[in-house]
Amino acid sequence: MAKRITKEFAEVSQEPPEGFTVALPPNDSIHTWHVTLRPSDPSPYSPGIFGLVLTLPSDYPFKAPVVKFVTRIYHPNVTNDSLGNICLGLLKPDAWKPSTKLRAVLEAVRNLLIEPQPDDPLEDRIAEEFRNDRPSFDKNVKFHVEKYARAEPTFPPVVAS
């Protein structure tokens, strides 16, 4: 199904969804995408630049892709560590549909930054704060954005899969 991935990459790189830029890692592995996200204004993460790594399993599109934040982010649905795992309903194994396009996945990630889902959190503490103490949450977000997400993201070297 490399053909589909090529096609989708061409589509996304030619007409990227708003706020995204997509590139392939230097070793030309089409199964790993380097995505840069610049959230637009309504998002509290607005001025930041976030790097994401999109890994496509070998039996994509029958298995869901894996999206991870490279840049640390203060978000209820993203683990606040160097792994940056995202909890995205779309990508759960029992909810993944092979017909879902990667563009839709990227847009879902962007929407997650605009509208966090505190009901399905990976970081309970942040979700709690998001629900109960919004100003404090916004402050922490700004702090993290200033601390981690101001420069162009550096992507880790691709591990041959």
């Binding site: 029958f62 298995k63 194994p93 029992d94 909810a95 549909k97 092979p98």
Partner: peptide
């Protein structure tokens, strides 16, 4: 392929 690799048994790739 989709049916064969579908984790939840058999589901339509579009509307499950």
């Amino acid at each position: 392929q989709s049916i064969y690799s579908s984790p939840s048994g058999t589901a339509c790739p579009i509307d499950r």
